[in-house]
Design a protein around this nucleic acid. Structure first.
Lengths: 225, 225
DNA sequence: AGGTCATTAGTTAATACTAACTAACTACAA
DNA sequence: TTGTAGTTAGTTAGTATTAACTAATGACCT
């Protein structure tokens, strides 16, 4: 995967690479059979619609038009399904962050890009929101909750380092420490997405996201004298 | 309750009234028997520690040192327990918000007060965080998810109106619209609490909360010329 | 004696998962 | 080209366990 991505980067622009992540099938790169991908996608859908309590092997198999036993041909347990699901998110996120960090944008441009791309992904697949933004739902299993916390922590660190970079090169205000700026930037984005979900995805997330970015920029960008 | 609160307000300062809410037993005012209160408190604890998946009648009764059947003497169903739990939160929150709105503080002072009081409540009873901040967890039941969304919406509206008030009287910047300021203020607070939880409540929430408030103030307070 | 609060011992339905089996395909030697 | 062996992906019909919930009963206090 890492090697492949490197090869991809040599032939395409950053903009084009982003399209890989945003494309209809987010799980393209993971080493899974078609049936496994289908099971994962359907699992995300079920969690999205019915919550974890509604995520049962019976519901899953019915949604796929298979018998319950058939699921176990492709995953050895329910936990393995959730694990795979989370791992694929972690992997995609890791590469996404890597791409953002490495490119030549300024820190504010990076934040803008993150807002743009994430709101695009969520607009295309609202079901992902339910899984990524619900840190509580896999609390049952220690292994799973660790994985979910990892996602949150990773995002935190990414914003933190981007903002620190911005403060160092005088693009972002130093009147407030980077930890608090991270809370405000990331927290605002998360709450916006949560509100969007609560309103049944009825408003245009991409537009709201853009508006939010410019508001944040207004407040945290260093003023020219 | 409303009448009672009004009577209380005539005899005590705002500061003292807050202590009612912050006191050990948040559920004091709700019309519940002692056993019922105990069941609700224990339910919150279980959800806090084991998640909703671990919130079963068996676990609950064991934690209380009762038989499973005994629970049904006090609540007619599991759903009724959760309903009561959420209703008590909604009631407390409603009165809390009312108190904030009515007092003579300036908008920024109001926000500061909310940060202070909420971080105090959560510090005393971290279990409450898991319930209030986990909008996903009761998704199973339509009635319950409506209740939880109501809490989020109410908080949203409160911040919105406080910030609008601040913009009208020139205490808060108008360079950014109040909806975005709400996202940043409330979103930052929520994310801080979530991080606190993720770090096993190990840092001092009250201190972090104070620091966050002053950071927000720095960014959104109208500059004197 | 009656009300309150608990118990024990169940029920029913749902859960994750398994055993035993099979149709359809694939690889490849005769 | 065809017979054979093995694989893949599915089936039906179960298992043990656990969930929420209930009926019948007992103990204690006033």
């Amino acid at each position: 995967m890492k090697v492949f991505l490197k090869a991809v980067k040599e032939h395409f622009s950053n903009q084009q690479i982003f399209l890989f992540f945003v494309s209809e099938h987010l799980l393209t790169f993971i080493m899974l059979s078609n049936r496994q991908k289908q099971i994962i996608e359907e699992s995300i859908n079920i969690i999205h619609i019915h919550g974890i309590q509604g995520f049962t092997i019976k519901n899953l198999s019915e949604a796929l038009g298979l018998s319950e036993a058939a699921i176990y041909r492709h995953f050895k347990s329910k936990t393995e399904i959730i694990c795979t699901l989370l791992d694929s998110f972690i992997e995609i996120l890791t590469d996404f962050i890597q791409l953002i960090k490495e490119n030549e944008f300024s820190p504010l441009e990076k934040i803008k890009t993150i807002f743009e791309k994430l709101s695009l992904i969520f607009s295309n697949k609202p079901a992902y929101v339910s899984v990524i933004f619900a840190e509580e739902i896999f609390k049952n299993d220690k292994l799973l909750s660790v994985k979910v916390n990892k996602i949150l922590k990773k995002n935190n660190e990414t914003f933190n380092s981007i903002i620190k970079e911005g403060q160092n090169n005088n693009e972002i205000t130093k009147s407030v420490s980077n930890q608090e700026l991270t809370l405000m930037t990331m927290g605002a984005f998360r709450l916006m997405v949560k509100n969007w979900k609560m309103n049944n995805f009825s408003f245009d997330l991409k537009k709201s996201s853009e508006k939010l970015y410019y508001s944040i920029e207004t407040l945290i960008k260093t003023k020219d004298n």
